[in-house]
Simulated scan of single mutants.
Amino acid sequence: MSRDLVTLTPRRPDVVAAVAELRLPAATLDGAVQVLDASGRLLVAAAAPRYVRVPGEAERLLGVPVNVPVWWVELRAAGDLPDARHQARGLADLLVRRYGGSVWPAA
């Protein structure tokens, strides 16, 4: 089963630069990033950042209070690869360290 994470950052995150910092193979298309393992299998898919400024919208989707405006990035870890969840969490944590904000779910 795949694992979804969401980063919520006050500044626009550069997902491509964050993936490059992790030194993982990746493919990009229109701001979305696919993180690959050494054999080319998809580990993590990261959507292009979306700007959320409507009060209550992020809270409605996540079920937790969210201060807006915020940049929203969805990360989905492949469910069939053991290292995928770890890589997705590592990328989410790196984005939050660089750009502020939080990761949902927190743990």
Score class of each variant (00 low, 15 high):
51 Y>D: 14
72 W>Y: 05
73 V>D: 01
78 A>I: 00
56 G>N: 09
77 A>Y: 05
68 V>I: 10
61 L>R: 15
71 W>N: 10
46 A>G: 04
75 L>G: 07
85 R>D: 15
69 P>I: 09
89 R>T: 06
44 V>D: 04
51 Y>P: 10
70 V>Y: 08
75 L>M: 08
88 A>W: 03
44 V>H: 04
88 A>F: 02
76 R>F: 00
45 A>S: 14
89 R>Q: 13
87 Q>E: 11
55 P>E: 05
86 H>P: 06
61 L>K: 12
52 V>D: 05
82 P>T: 07
72 W>E: 02
55 P>S: 14
85 R>Y: 03
52 V>S: 00
54 V>G: 08
84 A>L: 07
44 V>E: 03
88 A>C: 09
71 W>E: 01
79 G>K: 06
53 R>C: 13
81 L>A: 03
47 A>N: 07
60 R>V: 03
78 A>P: 09
79 G>I: 02
67 N>V: 15
83 D>R: 15
86 H>A: 13
57 E>M: 12
66 V>R: 02
59 E>K: 12
70 V>L: 02
74 E>T: 14
58 A>D: 09
65 P>M: 02
51 Y>C: 07
60 R>G: 13
62 L>G: 06
55 P>G: 13
60 R>Q: 15
86 H>M: 11
47 A>Y: 01
74 E>A: 12
78 A>K: 05
77 A>N: 12
51 Y>G: 03
69 P>H: 06
65 P>K: 09
79 G>C: 06
51 Y>T: 09
46 A>Y: 00
48 A>T: 01
75 L>E: 02
44 V>G: 10
49 P>W: 00
77 A>V: 06
68 V>C: 12
72 W>V: 03
45 A>P: 05
59 E>W: 08
49 P>L: 06
58 A>E: 03
61 L>F: 06
60 R>T: 14
68 V>D: 09
79 G>L: 07
78 A>L: 05
86 H>L: 10
47 A>W: 06
56 G>K: 11
79 G>Q: 00
53 R>K: 07
79 G>H: 01
74 E>K: 01
81 L>K: 02
49 P>T: 07
85 R>S: 15
66 V>P: 11
70 V>C: 09
72 W>M: 05
62 L>Q: 04
71 W>M: 01
76 R>V: 13
78 A>C: 03
73 V>Y: 02
85 R>P: 11
58 A>H: 05
73 V>A: 01
58 A>R: 09
49 P>S: 00
60 R>P: 10
71 W>S: 04
57 E>K: 15
76 R>N: 10
60 R>Y: 12
49 P>I: 02
